[in-house]
Design a protein around this nucleic acid. Structure first.
Lengths: 155, 155
DNA sequence: GTTAAACAGTACACTTTCAGTCCTGTTTAA
DNA sequence: TTAAACAGGACTGAAAGTGTACTGTTTAAC
């Protein structure tokens, strides 16, 4: 499996809660944590990170909370992954700028990765948060199932 | 960054050495390790794994070694990743069979990942080993540059 | 038949990364 | 003034990844 971190997965789920709210009202980390049934410290951490990367807007103070910084149609899965994990790429080399790799001039597969990464980037860029939030939500206030605890899975 | 393990990266590079040989002759792990300038134990480990998954054919004994099990045009990057890391997917849930996830029935993004993973699978399936081996090889006997040692990169 | 080269399989130690939590500080509505 | 809520950093335990070593099996060559 090509790994995405669990926090990124959580982040996407949390963002769908914001996206699903038609009024675009503010939601505190506590509310979101309760809704998503995830521990508050973890939710805090994720929302803070997403804010730093410009996907959420924070409001401090007693009635504070978070808002989506952009419309759900304008936020792609690639944006979210980029925010929490850095540029979308499968290998280190294509993340770094040209010339930074010490063995670049003689690598047998140099350049080919660019094409692969570009394809993946496009795939992830084509899926918007609005789509992720849309169809299959049966119970809005429900936990993330993407992460399956090992002990919860049939062997 | 969406992570692929280093061994997978190595594996792809090693396979390109086999693919690049027009005669499809057998190569021992020792030879490949020397050519790729990677430690022999590591190369051994990777080639053994690729053999178990059916991408290479092994021949034991004194003049033994490895061969590609199929033509380079018939081996995709997805095949290689699948062989070393399991099914191509970004999240756990889409790897498991339906029904195995305890929270499946109420996950807000369930099903949407299927689409994303499919897109990525197709992207990786469209790139064949023959393409990876083809164009940019300047010095056939050169090391893998995909992995950039942290200390080798400009900060 | 003996030998040595080469693959097969397993186990292990080391390192790095992830995940989750906690603590202190700042902001702001009531 | 108070308390709710975000900001930022630090820390720890767990998990995964990485590289190596060791023992066993196969087989070509002599």
């Amino acid at each position: 499996m090509i790994r995405m971190t669990r926090l990124t997965d959580y982040g996407i789920v949390l963002l769908t809660y914001f996206a699903r709210d038609p009024d675009h009202t503010m939601h505190s980390a506590r509310d979101v944590a309760t809704t998503a049934r995830l521990p508050l410290p973890t939710v805090n951490k994720i929302l803070k990170a997403l804010t730093r990367k410009g996907l959420l807007i924070s409001h401090r103070g007693v009635k504070g909370g978070y808002n989506l910084a952009r419309a759900p149609e304008e936020i792609s899965v690639a944006d979210i992954i980029t925010a929490t994990e850095g540029p979308v790429a499968l290998t280190q080399c294509t993340v770094s700028l040209p010339g930074l790799c010490v063995q670049e001039s003689c690598c047998p597969v140099h350049g080919n990765w660019q094409k692969i990464n570009e394809a993946i980037r496009q795939a992830l860029d084509g899926v918007k948060l609005s789509e992720m939030a849309r169809p299959l939500a049966r119970q809005p206030g429900s936990p993330n199932k993407n992460i399956v605890p090992r002990e919860a899975r049939v062997s």
